[in-house]
Design a protein around this nucleic acid. Sequence first.
DNA 1: AAATTGCATGTAAGCCTTTACACGTCAGCT
DNA 2: AGCTGACGTGTAAAGGCTTACATGCAATTT
Lengths: 350, 350
Amino acid sequence: MSVTIYDIAAKANVSIATVSRVFNNHARVSPRTRARVLAVAEELGYQPHASAQSLARKKTSLVAAIIPMMTNYFFVEVIRGLQDRLAESDLDLIVYSTLTLNEVDVQLERALQRGLASGVLLFATPMTPARVARLQRSSQPVVLVDSFHADFDCVSTNNREGGCRAVQHLIDRGCTRIGMIMAHPESLPAADRRIGFEQALRQAGLPLREEWIVVSEDMKQHGFTEEAGYQAMKTLLARRTRPDGVFVTSDLQALGALQALHEAGVAVPDEMALIGFDDIKISRYVGLSTLRQPMYEMGRVAVDKLLGRMEQPERPTSHTVFSPALVVRRSTAGEQAQEKGFLAWPLDHT
Amino acid sequence: MSVTIYDIAAKANVSIATVSRVFNNHARVSPRTRARVLAVAEELGYQPHASAQSLARKKTSLVAAIIPMMTNYFFVEVIRGLQDRLAESDLDLIVYSTLTLNEVDVQLERALQRGLASGVLLFATPMTPARVARLQRSSQPVVLVDSFHADFDCVSTNNREGGCRAVQHLIDRGCTRIGMIMAHPESLPAADRRIGFEQALRQAGLPLREEWIVVSEDMKQHGFTEEAGYQAMKTLLARRTRPDGVFVTSDLQALGALQALHEAGVAVPDEMALIGFDDIKISRYVGLSTLRQPMYEMGRVAVDKLLGRMEQPERPTSHTVFSPALVVRRSTAGEQAQEKGFLAWPLDHT
DNA sequence: AAATTGCATGTAAGCCTTTACACGTCAGCT
DNA sequence: AGCTGACGTGTAAAGGCTTACATGCAATTT
């Protein structure tokens, strides 16, 4: 049924070794033979057998990406970056997406199966000692995206800086009572963003009031959901005094928060300004100010690192940090927003 | 270095065949031996070698999905459905995403490589004779999602019905001059939606005026982009007379169209009502009426079909059609919308 | 007691490549 | 002419697993 190098060898009157050499550009094949083999292969419609190649070469052409919360559209762009860069190196991408972080370990186990992928991209996953150990035991090339551990190559955004700039922006626009809605603190990005938040307040000499900080203890997607944001804002609104500016650890949560604000009839940004993090596509439509992560680029860089390590397993690990860019929209700047947002609010008959 | 069945066999004093049998639950292994093998395997940290298994079993545990325009968030949900169902059957997912349809053939070639995947899910791709031939030659199990061809298993949405219901809804709310913004007609879903559109107009005895129909000839993502929608609406607005209700072939395009309407100062829905297709997440936020496709479910069903065919290659092909559900939001119902939309429009100080 | 059955296990072939090593041929050298 | 090398090609051994077939032994039957 399917054509193997044996078939080609027989028909071209050469040995299978020669056929293999032709396909691997392994020099030392006379032009005549090469041409003949190629012709026969073409005629027979030969295609190398991926598993057999992997077995013989002791490496595969697959890379695994483990992506918790893929519904967070942040990752879609990153995947595109991965995909594009991988294709250039003739690698394919296996995607493991999970809804909760517990599933990550199950998927990780699958992704690390011997002889499956020749590298792993692990997204937004806190590096517990158990995970570190598991990864090291596998001795596979690994790149952490949106997470950090000194023993691995990492790509991430400067979350502290982002948090800091978000708050500075709120201050610049005149906010003095600044609060925060935070995802589960086990999430490193969330924790770092909070550090930046606190730092900026300190620098500006503004009060840091616990009353204005709401932390989502919800484990589902680490609290990076609209629902969590919605609940958090409700909680915040119920407090005795309210902040006049809130930094939210992700756009997704911020959307939920906006909903809560609207239901409560709070004017944004006049009564309360809001700024998120990520710059997912939706944010543009709703005019949410945020800190943009260079998602596509992060994907590409992650693959670069992985390829680098695949070639030189012993090279020192490195950590690439992208600076998030402030995007000012209506949720902090009102009608004066530089970037008006695509979809105008008064879409209807105001 | 890595542990093989030989290591286990040696240490447990059995042959490699027995070890293999244990791991494949191949009956006829005495409980004692089984226990011993398992114990040794555990101790040594054995993991089967994926490529070797594939080679010996003549099938892999991978399924390939080719997804053009993954940036169309429609697919993210579908992928989740795929992933969940695949995991239940211990299969992994290779994702090939492309931006244009030309790349599809390149990716298809990769996906069909012998010994790589044991099934292919092809998304939203028009079935040219060349593609049909290519797929049939590979004799791999294939499922088409959001596309149709009698020789393959298919999963799709009833696009005609959807188009029809969209228009009926516009009629119900009182529109009499109904137009359409259409993606590239080579796209089957787009073409079908138009058929529904025309049918509904005919049934209602309303005029079908070419002047109110704008077709995106843009090939990039088949015109399923905001930009295409934006341009199309601008074109439409420049016409001598304007429709008072427009059906757009996708939410993504509709968002662009909304932008154009806003820039032109056209009140939605009062001067012009708008309805899209897909119900991507953003639509809820901006209050776009639309026809919802059961995306997650479609993913699951697609995998069901694929698994079915993997087991019985000769069974007759089938086509599962989901009916899209009308979701009424502000862009057609104004403030009376049943589903208000998450993010209120007058977010700012109106 | 001999013959038969059935079960647990082993042997070895096969899946398709890659690649180290060996071999033969021929050109170029002394 | 004889020797050395280079070059093109073949042989065969991995690579790790599955599985058809063979084997040996104990339990059962007559």
